[in-house]
Design a protein around this nucleic acid. Structure first.
Length: 931
RNA sequence: GGGCCUAUAGCUCAGUUGGUUAGAGCGCACGCCUGAUAAGCGUGAGGUCGUUAGUUCGAAUCUAACUAGGCCCA
């Protein structure tokens, strides 16, 4: 007789091989067909809301691993909140305006662009953005991210664009928006402003000059220098910016020397004296004084050729790498100069027009092109005796990406949001304190940024974005932008579309009879500036979260990469505090950056990039999700083939554990076969209790957003508590007892509860596998949810009486480990092979003895040996002596009797049955019950 | 160059307020099983806790510097 056929072996269609890459696609199709997202919304309707507001990725290019990380984290949170009973809608968004898209469209259009109207170009940009929204949407969905994908928010939506204008209007109304001046990269031959991304650096030869700025008599005296012919020496490679010089900047912490050369006293950084003197050709010089840079602050020098003074200021950007440590500062012609100029309240003076020529009122150089003016400046300096040295240098210099010509920095009129008006900075800093930041250092990081940032320049000289709806008087250049005007304009754009702004002349956009308040003129030009895209996304708290009926509330959580302390967290905060006085979020979570296996950033040039699509094809999206869950995302997150391999192995373990339990539940009907917890066998209770602890740990980890805790504890539970402990022991019972016996049903009841609970616990992370297994699990009649994602997490019901039981079993498991070690020794000695070949005898100290004595008849099963007995006497010298459990000795010998052909245990009863002569008495009884 | 952050076994993570031989799982090696089988079980070997200096009776844990790396600025 083939006794194997009389056993209850596991049986399930749930495949061992996951085949994720294919299976996931089917599951996704089913979710879409069933409108799972909609069903969940319906299911949670009226429950307490949890709003995770999606930060919009830029609609350009395919998604990379950082996108995957970000969106999967969000998905895990949304799903976990949903399964905790919240109504947690997820509306994804995209950032659609901005330079990178306009840039790409420019490239595609080429010369054709010149014949197109602004709104036609905008149309191309819109199409381009929508194309990538479509591509990225599919890529995100492929990762198993559940959301309202058919109705995302796009910053190019009509409603959104109008929302942007309305938000900006609030700053017009409260005076926070002002027109100022700021240097930008400017291409004089293309006659346009350039963004940083449009600037290419190339070698360029420039004149390098050293120039004397004479200290005023008072200033020289303060430094203890001669009142005449004492000079601060500056160095520059852009002589043409000298007409715009406003200051000379020293480092406050550097030492400066006054060097006597002939009749002159020259001030320059101490460390650079030797180099400079050599360069100037002075070998006879003497240092007459040394002072700290800070001491010279606010002293005055005379401009070398203009009738004005140039202030001595200090700034941390000054270096000792080149020059003199004294930096010529023209706030209208450089970023550093601008920043430090603002600090000292200097005029942002720019004498250069859009063609790169000096304006007509510029002394000495009116009408000259700046580059040609270089030589004339030098000549003038020589005439005035202010030139110490000139030579040519080759250095890296910015060039226009389009015409390849060298570009200049030029201050142009720009729009700003003031950090001080309405105490925006102060209020923003206070708002930061009211928000919960995780990890905690995020608070200091963004605080420092807001504390030190300059006013926010919100204008861009571009076309792909929301317009700044300002007008300028054609006669006197007075700015016309007040609440009434913007109201009027928004009214028109709301009806006719934002493109109208670009198509219609100013007159048609203004209210009738508009007159310039300054000169009374009635002719106006409209602003051609658009808004910084960071303003676009910064208003989503209002346009999306407040106004969209799907939320109609306020955000609980923002979750983005740590770069967004400067980006979206920052701009959203300023915008929200500026318009509502409050932070736009209650809690902010940040994640690190994806780096390679050795911690280096991923880049094409290093060749260490791993694209999500590659992982999906090779391993499945589920593995990407497990990766996200397994790593501590608050720091940089490593991604490599080795890591993915480990994850795949962990995944297989989890999958197989579930598969095994499903297999053992194939004949289990929870409605009729369930043994209540209180009546279950002790071991089954124990695993229940261990599982209750897991539930506690996992649900807490979701609440705290500590997903790697889920990963580790869940995996450990599968490996340690289930696979190598509970399931291994219980196999004998499940297989050999009659199918409907109490012993077997008790174990099945435990497995049923566990599987049912585990699938729910893992669903936020292992969304595909949980769903797949959900269908293979038997369910109580009428209670099965269509999807595991519509269920709630299992509840913990740890009864306190269980604690003692758990403690006792922890000790038993320890003893079991020692028995394993003893068995392994015997195995090495070829005394046994399988542990069932063995009979063990244990001797223990009193407490441990009592612990086991209570379970003496189960000991063999627990140790998975054929026979186990206890002995209160010490055992003979050949026994295994435990090093970890004092008093424990284990004797291993061959089991007595013969091997039962059915249950493979050795027993002296084998042969006693007439009917089944090769099985033990236990099996004979079981057989009698079955047949 | 500045701000913020990180650094524990090959990999992913634990290590409470500083206190006995630094833990887990995976991987690896070796073995068992062949009734979870492209599975399952067991045993074992892996770490001078980035480096150096300091505080302390005592530091992976506190301080400083350095090195490597990340984000954001310049």
């Amino acid at each position: 007789m083939n006794y194997k056929d009389t056993l209850n072996l596991p049986d399930t269609q749930f495949p061992m091989k996951a085949n994720l890459a294919e299976k996931e696609v089917t599951t996704l199709a089913r979710w879409e067909e069933d409108d799972l997202y909609g069903a969940i919304r319906e299911e949670r309707k009226g429950k307490k809301a949890f709003i995770l507001h999606d930060g919009p990725p830029y609609a350009n290019g395919n998604i990379h691993s950082g996108h995957a990380l970000n969106k999967i984290l969000k998905d895990i949170i949304v799903k976990a909140k949903t399964m905790s009973g919240f109504d947690a809608p997820y509306v994804p968004g995209w950032d659609c305006h901005g330079l990178p898209i306009e840039h790409q469209v420019d490239k595609q259009l080429g010369k054709k662009k010149r014949e197109m109207s602004t709104s036609e170009i905008r149309g191309e940009c819109r199409e381009y953005a929508l194309k990538y929204v479509g591509i990225q949407r599919e890529e995100f969905k492929r990762l198993g991210i559940l959301g309202d994908w058919e109705r995302p928010y796009l910053t190019l939506d009509h409603n959104y664009e109008i929302g942007i204008l309305k938000e900006l209007q609030k700053f017009v109304a409260n005076g926070g928006l002002y027109r100022g001046s700021k240097p930008v990269h400017w291409c004089p031959s293309c006659v346009t402003a350039l963004a940083e991304a449009e600037v290419e650096y190339a070698d360029h030869t420039s004149p390098s000059i050293f120039v004397k700025f004479e200290l005023t008599a008072d200033s020289a005296r303060i430094l203890g220098l001669p009142e005449t012919q004492s000079y601060v020496v500056i160095w520059t490679t852009t002589p043409w910016t000298l007409p715009a010089n406003m200051a000379v900047c020293l480092h406050p912490d550097f030492n400066y020397s006054a060097v006597k050369v002939g009749d002159d006293t020259l001030v320059l950084a101490e460390d650079l004296v030797t180099n400079c003197m050599t360069a100037f050709g002075f070998d006879d010089y003497e240092t007459v004084a040394t002072f700290n840079g800070a001491k010279a602050e606010r002293l005055k020098t005379r401009h070398p050729f203009l009738e004005k003074e140039s202030l001595v200021i200090t700034g941390g950007h000054v270096t000792l790498e080149q020059g003199t440590g004294c930096v010529h500062t023209a706030p209208g012609h450089g970023q550093d100069d601008y920043a430090v100029g603002m600090k000292y309240g200097l005029e942002i003076y720019n004498p250069v027009d859009q063609y790169g020529k000096f304006k007509p009122d510029t002394p000495h150089f009116a009408g000259q092109k700046v580059r040609k003016a270089n030589a004339n400046v030098i000549t003038l300096l020589e005439e005035r005796g202010a030139l110490l040295k000139r030579e040519d240098v080759e250095h890296s210099y910015p060039h226009c990406w389009r015409c390849r010509g060298p570009i200049i920095f030029r201050a142009t009129p720009q729009w700003f949001l003031s950090m001080e008006k309405n105490q925006l900075r102060q209020k923003a800093l206070e708002a930061i304190r009211s928000v919960e930041w995780k990890p905690g250092w995020g608070e200091n990081r963004i605080y420092g940024m807001v504390e030190n940032r300059p006013d926010w320049c919100v204008s861009r000289q571009r076309v792909w974005g929301a317009p700044i709806t300002a007008f300028y008087c054609e006669e006197c250049d007075e700015t016309l932008m007040d609440e009434n005007i913007t109201d009027h304009v928004i009214g028109i754009l709301e009806k006719e579309g934002v493109d109208v702004w670009f198509d219609k002349p100013a007159g048609e956009l203004l209210p009738d009879n508009t007159k310039c308040s300054n000169c009374g003129s009635t002719s106006f030009t409209k602003s051609s500036d658009i808004l910084d895209v960071w303003f676009d996304s910064g208003v989503s708290h209002s346009v999306v979260v407040k106004d969209d009926p799907r939320f109609a509330g306020s955000s609980d959580l923002y979750l983005e990469g740590s770069d967004q302390h400067r980006g979206w967290f920052h701009t959203s905060l300023l915008e929200s505090v500026g318009s509502t006085g409050k932070a736009p979020y209650r809690e902010v979570l940040t994640h690190g950056y994806v780096v390679d296996g050795s911690g280096k950033k991923m880049s094409k040039s290093l060749g260490n990039v791993i694209a999500p699509q590659t992982i999906i094809d090779k391993y499945g999206a589920e593995i990407v999700r497990l990766w996200v869950a397994g790593e501590d995302y608050t720091e940089d997150i490593r991604l490599s083939d080795v890591i993915l391999k480990r994850l795949t192995e962990a995944y297989r373990k989890i999958r197989n554990t579930i598969r095994f339990m499903l297999g053992n539940l194939s004949d289990f009907d929870p409605d009729t076969d369930m043994v209540p917890y209180s009546e279950q066998m002790e071991l089954d209770k124990v695993i229940h209790l261990k599982f209750a602890r897991l539930i506690e740990k996992v649900t807490t980890s979701y609440d705290m957003y500590d997903f790697h805790v889920f990963y580790h504890s869940f995996h450990n539970f599968c490996v340690l508590d289930l696979s190598s402990f509970y399931l291994d022991i219980v196999k004998d019972r499940i297989y050999t007892f009659p199918a409907a016996s109490f012993e077997r049903r008790s174990a099945q009841s435990a497995m049923y509860e566990l599987t049912h609970g585990m699938l729910r616990l893992m669903a936020p992370v292992l969304s595909f596998t949980a769903e797949e297994a959900w269908d293979f699990l038997p369910h109580c009649a009428g209670s099965k949810k269509k999807s595991v994602h519509m269920t709630l997490f299992p509840a913990t019901s740890v009864d306190t009486s269980g604690e003692t039981l758990l403690k006792e079993w922890e000790r038993i498991v320890m003893i079991r480990g020692e028995v394993s070690t003893a068995l392994e020794k015997a195995r090495r000695n070829k005394e046994i092979g399988h542990s069932l070949d063995a009979r063990v005898t244990l001797s223990l100290f009193k407490n441990d003895y009592a612990l086991l004595e209570n379970r003496e008849k189960d000991l063999a099963a627990i140790f998975i040996v054929s026979q186990a007995e206890l002995n209160s006497e010490p055992l003979d010298g050949n026994s295994f002596i435990s090093e970890t459990i004092p008093g424990l000795t284990v004797k291993v010998e061959r089991a007595h009797g013969d091997k039962c052909e059915r249950c493979w245990n050795y027993d002296e009863s084998v042969g006693h049955s007439d009917k089944w002569p090769t099985v033990c008495s236990k099996c004979a009884n079981n057989l009698a019950a079955i047949i």
